[in-house]
């Protein structure tokens, strides 16, 4: 290498290294922590269907679990093909305060179940594409 190129290499790396390390570490530290404990493909449906809502891209079934808990089943029904979807619920507590809770992640055209425990309608459910950062569905129960 000629002297100019050697010098250019040195300058580039002295600039790049701090930028990349700061970018990588802060990107990792600031990353949102999506819930993963409720992530799961459901192969069976609970027998007692309480209510069903269909949006343009998804079908939402609210069912009763065997222990009396509320189960939300979400299934993608359209040709859109997101592979990373975040399901969020918004409901009002008995005290009157409004709560937004991330239920879990979906990953494609399968049926997913989320245990809502004691949460009962009315509530709204939102599905967001975490890659494109767009809302795919927003429905009311």
């Amino acid at each position: 290498m000629i002297a100019t190129l050697r010098r250019r290499h040195r300058i580039i790396w002295r600039v790049l290294v701090p930028i990349l390390f700061i970018g990588a570490v802060s990107g990792y530290m600031l990353a949102p922590k999506y819930p993963s404990d409720q992530f799961g493909v459901s192969r069976i449906s609970y027998p007692q269907l309480l209510r069903s809502v269909v949006s343009e891209n998804y079908m939402f079934d609210l069912r009763n679990g065997y222990g009396g808990e509320s189960i939300l089943e979400v299934k993608q029904i359209s040709a859109i093909n997101p592979v990373s979807e975040l399901v969020t619920i918004r409901y009002r507590k008995a005290s009157g305060s409004e709560v937004t809770q991330e239920l879990g992640m979906m990953g494609g055209r399968k049926k997913y179940s989320f245990n809502l425990k004691t949460i009962q309608p009315p509530f709204s459910v939102t599905v967001t594409d975490t890659i494109k950062r767009v809302t795919l569905a927003n429905i009311e129960f």
């Binding site: 190129l5 250019r8 290499h9 580039i12 790396w13 790049l16 930028i19 990349l20 970018g23 990588a24 990107g27 990792y28 990353a31 949102p32 999506y34 990373s84 975490t130 890659i131």
Partner: peptide
């Protein structure tokens, strides 16, 4: 030598992509 720019873009592509999910 633009490969270094590409490398920086790739690192941030991974950090802001798969590492966020």
């Amino acid at each position: 030598m633009l490969v270094y720019v590409a490398y920086a873009l790739v690192i941030m592509h991974v950090v802001l992509g798969v590492l966020q999910l």
